[in-house]
Amino acid sequence: METLFELDRIIVEMFDFLFMRRAILVGLLVSLCAALLGVNLVLKRYAMIGTSLSHVGFAAMVIATGIDLAVEREFSHFFVTLPMVVLAAFALLLLSENNKIKGDSAVALVSTSSLAIGIIIVSQTTGLNTDVCGVMFGSILAMTRFDVQLSVVLSISVLTLFVLFYKQLFAVTYDETFAKATGTKVFVYKALLAFLTAVTVVLGMRMMGALLIASLTIFPALSAMRLCKRFLSVVITAAIIAVTCFFVGMVLSYTYNLPPGASVVAVNLTVFVFFSGIALMKGRG
C-alpha cells in the first residue's frame, strides 16, 4: 500500500495524469476565489447564501444532466448551471434584503426546495447512479478540456474583480450604513459579491461536490480569523490556508483513494481546529 513516506514519488505520479493536472489547476484557482470571497461572506453574515447557492447548483446540475441525456453528450453543464445559480444569487440577496427577520428562513427555503426539486428529477430520470453521486459529493474525472479553459478564465475574472473592488467590498462589509451615507452604491457591491460567489460555487461544484463546496468559502475565513486581527491579513491568510489545504487534500485523496472534495474539507477542518487551539492558548498566555 502506498503511504505518505513516498511523498515526492506520489506527487510526481499525480502530475502524470492529465485529469489530475486539470483538477489541481482548477481546484487551486477555485479555492483561492472561495477563500477571498468567503472572508466577506462570513463577516457580512452571508455564509448561508453560499450554502444555499450550492443547493441550487445541485438542482441546476441535475437538470443539465437531464438535458445531456436528451442531446447526447458534448454539452457543457456550465451553460445551464451558471445562469441559474447567478439568478438565484440575486434572488437570495433581494430576499435577505427586503425582509430582515424572515430573510434567513427564505434562504433556507430556497435551499431545501432546490434539493427537493433536484431529487425528484433524479428519481424520474437516471436514479441515484455514480453521476449523481459525483454531482453531490464531487468528482475530478468529469472535466473536459473546454470546462477547464472556461474555469480558468472565469476564476481569474473573479480574482481580478475581487482585487479591483477590494476597497468597496471592505467598506460595504465593514459598515454598510456609513458607506451608503457617504454616497457609495452599496447595493451594487452586494450584488457583485453575490455574483462572484455564484460563479465560484458553480466552478467548484463539479470537483468538490454540491454538498461540500460551501465549506471552501467558510473554513479558510474562520481559521484565518482565529489568528489575524487585520482585514488584509485575514484575507491573505485565508488564501494561503485554502490553497495549502486543497493541495494537501488532493495528495491525501490520491494516496489513500479518498473522495477529493471530502478530503479537502477534512484538511480544512483540521486546520481550523489547530488554529482554534492556538488562539485559545494565546488567549490564556
Binding site: A179, F231, S233
Partner: peptide, 27 residues
Amino acid sequence: IGYLPQQSAAQKDFPASCFEIVISGRL
C-alpha cells in the same frame, strides 16, 4: 458628507486595523 453613526452598524469583533477603517472613509 462625513458621518459618525450613533451605534456603528459594524460588528464588535470585526477584524480590521484602525488604519483600514479610517482610510475606508476615502472611498
